[in-house]
Design a protein around this nucleic acid. Sequence first.
DNA 1: ATGTAC
Length: 498
Amino acid sequence: MDTINPNLRISGPATATIDVGDAHSPITVIGNDAIRQTFDDQTIQQAINSRLAPGVTDVVLNPDAHVGYGAPVGCVMLSPTHVYPGPVGVDIKCSMSLLQTDIPADEIVSQTVRRKLIQAIGKRVPSGAGRGQRHVPKSRPVDGRLGFQLTTEGASKNVLKKLGIPKAWADRCEDWHHTAPDGSSDTLAARLEFLGRNRDSLDRLESKYRQLGSYGGGNHFGEAEVVRFAKDQASREVAQSFGLRDGHVAFLSHCGSRGLGHDLAMGQFRSLKTSFQKQGLAFPAGDPQLVYADARSDEGRLYLCDMAMGANFATVNHLMINQLVLEAFREVFPSVRGELVYFISHNIVRQEQVGQQLQWVHRKGATRAFPARHPGLQRTPFAETGHPILLPGNPRDGSSVMVALPGAERSAFSVNHGAGRRMSRTKAKKMLDQHQIDTELMNHDILSNCRQYPRDEAPDAYKDFNQVLASVEQAGLATEVARLEAKFVIKDGAPADD
DNA sequence: ATGTAC
């Protein structure tokens, strides 16, 4: 038996199911033989707990799945009625973005040029827990008023204008803004005023606004890439239509809603947990991380308001980072042009039509994957092709841009969000050799802003990205249109001294 | 993920 779970049954190429009893449809598992070996008992147990939780009608486990908060990171949870804040997580709307420049790969062969770019980015975009605008000399200052506006409006024309971000980039966002469930930004404004009702809470909010345009710690990163189109003509045409440029430099970012999203999420976990205890309600599978609310209840709507505000901050944060990175490139290449290819989340709950039902689709470390002519893409630049799917792998093996196939319906129009952790951070720090990691990156000609690359973020701390991608393609969910080859990485870690 | 916690 090649799997630890006796109830796991192969149901197609790189696709399996886990039965959870006759009353429920089984869990869908995406992963080939190699990938199915990577799911540990706790991950499977979390998938089962999520599947059996109240109001949940479907769960998909993706190839990058590993243990998470309540539900596995790398899963999709569907409910027509309920929202689950835990699975959305503390980093509300953690996302990927890709900025395409017109710089040919040849121009960044020189390590000196790349060092200059790393420094120019470092002057504008801070990274690491707690870090914000005061930590860098060339940030874009955000006062309380603008912070309030962008948190309630998202990437509105006014917000983008005030921040010097091209307004066309809003069209390249999966969602350029998020509102309250009643469709209003004013409802969010009222909620945010309430959250900042006293001096202390207002100070705290304003300190979070000042993190706009920054990376966090952990797996957040920025990476300069060389774009390599796939070989087949159809994929090349899709890549071209996305605005990608073969053999040119692009910049990939992974970041979320920083301290603001964290505070909003934690606030919700706390109050929902208290409310469960007061009512004597049992947590699903006894796990407080699986607290939930009916989406139409007061509590559910309040959660969706706070999530929307975290998501708005995350959206503008990403766009700000991209503009600051473009300005950094301009310091080294004065005539550079850059355009946002796409911005897409992997930690969010959205209401979507799935089959016959309108569902709350919780993507926890999962990426939306709408193929060509999906109704959700009407009036977007991607209606006829499907939208770009941005998948970070690791610096050594590369990252990927994919596009969904009609088969994505079997995974609730979702794919993985990256490679997925193979080792815990503690295990990686213990097991992986610092010198080996740094030497390997050097041998691949990959530079970094860190003197020592964080061991718990090393390529070998993650699953085999090629097997993850192979699983997605074998299952018929999506196909690769371009590979991204890392040339330098910006991460939170010991800074290089030169 | 997060100036690490009810």
